[in-house]
Amino acid sequence: MKNPREVTRSDVIMMIGIGIVASVVGIALGLWIDWFPAAAATQATSIDTFYDVLIIISVPVFVLVTIIVLFSALRFRVRAGEEELDGPPTHGNTRLEIIWTAIPSIMVTALCVYGASVLSDIDAAKADQIQVTAYAQQFAWDFEYTGTNGNKFLTEQMYVPCKPTTEAAGEGAPCVGRQIKFDIKAVDVIHSFWIPAMRMKQDAVPGIVTHTKVNPIRLGTYPIVCAELCGIGHSIMRSTIHVVTPARYTAWLAAKSAAKTG
């Protein structure tokens, strides 16, 4: 009779097989799950792709650990009559230890390189920018634009222009927009300016001006959220960004500028 503690070649093949299947299923699941809100800026597309890569790398790591734990628990568990038995006295294996130091090192290095490149991507400044100053205070957002007449005005709702690339110009239509550059200021305590649909987030810090940029690519209306605990009304400190056609934007800007001067 076969010794149940023996690990045969076919066991190993089976584990590898199950591992591959589980990884494929896991990765498929990970990619299929609708994790992110609709991507409304180029930053969002880069980060989403990055996340997919992270999923593809992570799932096999988890599967590896889990399979070995489960296999060991099932195969090597103590059976009747083995209560006094001890395992083989292996103290280590230098080759294995080098492998499991080297491979993760290479993996995280690769990730860091990729991460740094995505970071410089999403941070890249474009020549053609619209500058907006975001003011955070307990518990509301105010946005300062430069009007058509050069005067500044404040608004609670953000509008940004984005030129549709298709015939349709409704909610969700693809578009190319000018880069929006935010200067972020806090009046009282720390807040955090976050547009989940554009994936960008930046704390608003009293005493300094912080910055972030987004390049809109999708028409629509998206929430702006305060992400840093700022007191009693933190959870209701929200606003909205409207990504609209250039025509609508110009009209809005003109109306706002006029209201300010008038």
Binding site: R77, V78, E82, L85, G92, N93
Partner: peptide, 11 residues
């Protein structure tokens, strides 16, 4: 994991 492998595991 290496410690578990081929041990006599008391669950």
């Amino acid at each position: 994991l290496g410690t578990l492998w081929k041990g006599v595991i008391h669950l």
